[in-house]
Design a protein around this nucleic acid. Structure first.
Lengths: 217, 217
DNA sequence: CGAAGCCTTGACCGTCATCAAACGGCGTGG
DNA sequence: CCACGCCGTTTGATGACGGTCAAGGCTTCG
């Protein structure tokens, strides 16, 4: 297993930055080796009992919620190295699915485990992500949202020049509260403005980072 | 940047739901007595150092973020008994303001936090609310969002028949990603459908809870 | 090589933002 | 106590953005 490379940002100052991977290391006995999932395969389901936490090894994951009328909302994407699926001893409020061929490591939790202090930084970061996403989708304009999404993905992948999108337009749409058509149109508009360039449908070069930031606010 | 990310998917997890108030009681030594704020008064500002957490005693609080162009987004409302002000990094990412005449108790945080486990339920509730709000504002229709908002407020106030709104239409609009006009029109539509009745502009009787739920999904 | 997805583009239309105006409550001051 | 003015709310008219429906191009995989 790869030693998780962790660089917790300044956000978690009050709570010590290191313990998340320490938890994982110290409890490696409860961890399972990487298991792989096919594209679209469910990792856990809504309403299912939550007893483990997960870490993306390769590929990507979407956490989503389905409405009665068939509409779907995606709450978050998770890229390699990132944790998701907290909520042990309770019931999952959302489901998680693999995007493309994906490897997942998992760690079992028990009711008596006192992980609170160790997990606090992770939970706080999760909260911060949720808040950022709130701000993103409250923005009015479709192009703004799309620009913000690209900016977010670039930051998370650590390359401000080239973004590799693992997910389909439909996933992006459900994440941004748009339709696939609108996402596509937004991409086209960004391309026409010279902000981005395509190298294949899911490989996007960011030509003008400054303009992207301007649009993302 | 490749910081590990954790997605919290369940409201309660391994952390018991009750001890939040107990924390406050047991650590009263670090707490400050209730201080009161006038309508619109700032409790803390964006960029300000975050050293305390807060609890609404009476009145209400809005947590908001201002964009460069003057647009404002409200991330959350907080009602009596609720905690806010986590984001608990060294610096506040958003500001908090009183809605109406409001009483706030606060609790100082130290670098050697032993409170993690005690505060975890409150943080998790914050996170669950943020996720719920994510789902809420991804809904397309203005009336759906407004109905969901009323439903949420009714649940939080513990009365499914009568909702007392402490905040102005403009606040609701910035919370739902709409305009004051759209919020007003949505209310009117709900009224015309017989779902709600007005007893004054900010006192709303829910005549048909089932229809409200149907709209809210 | 064919078929099935995925993505893009176009035309049309509904919803909501915008601009504008009128209404109502509430506090202040005459 | 009433008149006035301010502010929050409601209502109306208009237009733009994005959803919907439809068609066609592109990629991928059997």
């Amino acid at each position: 297993m790869n030693a998780p490379t962790v660089s917790m940002n300044a956000r978690t100052a009050i709570f010590p930055p290191e313990p998340v991977q320490a938890v994982f290391a110290s409890l490696a006995s409860r961890s399972r080796p990487t298991s792989s999932y096919a594209n679209g395969q469910e990792i856990y389901a809504e309403g299912q009992r939550a007893t483990r936490i997960y870490r993306v090894e390769f590929g990507a994951v979407r956490v989503c919620h389905s409405l009665a009328d068939g509409r779907r909302q995606i709450l978050s994407f998770h890229l390699p190295g990132e944790w998701f699926g907290f909520g042990a001893n309770s019931v999952h409020r959302f489901s998680a699915e693999a995007i493309g061929y994906t490897g997942i490591q998992s760690l079992g939790l028990t009711a008596t485990m006192d992980l609170s202090s160790s997990l606090m930084p992770a939970v706080l970061q999760c909260l911060a992500r949720a808040q950022d996403h709130q701000l993103l989708i409250t923005r009015q304009c479709a192009t703004e949202r799309t620009a913000a999404f690209l900016s977010e993905m670039a930051e998370r992948q650590g390359d401000r020049n080239l973004v590799q999108l693992p997910m389909a337009r439909a996933d992006i749409a459900d994440y941004l509260g748009l339709t696939t058509e609108s996402v596509s149109r937004s991409f086209t508009r960004l391309k026409d403005k010279g902000v981005i360039r395509f190298h294949g449908q899911r490989s996007i070069e960011i030509a003008r980072w400054d303009m992207l930031q301007l649009l993302s606010e």
